[in-house]
């Protein structure tokens, strides 16, 4: 999970670095296909992490922006396509991290509850023994 996240992050950073370099002097006609692909991967990753349930607002926002990026790409508006793709990727990454955090929280609560139950059992057993 985290390796996929970091790989996605690295890819995004790479794409952003290229974009930053490009924005300085390159024209708006640079095909944004790579940016859109990276963002789609981020959205897919968030979805498989359960973001649809655990971070629905962020995931919906990411999907809406992906749709606009695709539309811009189809219209050969590469500048808009790249912008929408970057925005979508930011939303998707947040969606994924929120989902992962929610899962970790519930797992932590569960383990803690089981520890508490064991401790209660131990204390009860202790009390019985002392009777």
């Amino acid at each position: 999970m985290s390796t996929r996240l970091s790989r996605t992050t690295l890819q995004l950073l790479g794409a952003l670095a290229i974009a930053v370099a490009a924005v300085g002097c390159a024209s708006d006609k640079t095909p944004a296909t790579a940016d859109v692909a990276v963002s789609r991967a981020a959205v897919d990753s968030a979805t498989s992490s359960g973001a649809a349930e655990l971070a629905p607002a962020e995931l919906t926002s990411a999907r809406d922006k992906m749709m606009k990026a695709n539309q811009a790409l189809a219209a050969k508006d590469y500048k808009a396509a790249k912008e929408w793709a970057d925005l979508a990727a930011a939303d998707a990454q947040l969606a994924q991290s929120k989902a992962n955090t929610a899962k970790a929280t519930s797992a932590a609560n569960e383990v803690q509850q089981s520890v508490n139950a064991m401790r209660d059992e131990l204390n009860r057993s202790n009390a019985n023994q002392q009777q």
């Binding site: 930011a90 939303d91 990454q93 991290s97 929120k98 797992a107 803690q112």
Partner: peptide, 27 residues
């Protein structure tokens, strides 16, 4: 803004994972 929020979430996730490990030790 979204990336800052993401960093906060990841930090939070790491804290929860530490809590899981701690609970495991307690267990």
């Amino acid at each position: 803004t979204q990336k800052i929020a993401t960093a906060q979430q990841v930090a939070h996730q790491k804290a929860e994972e530490a809590r899981i490990a701690d609970a495991g030790r307690q267990r």
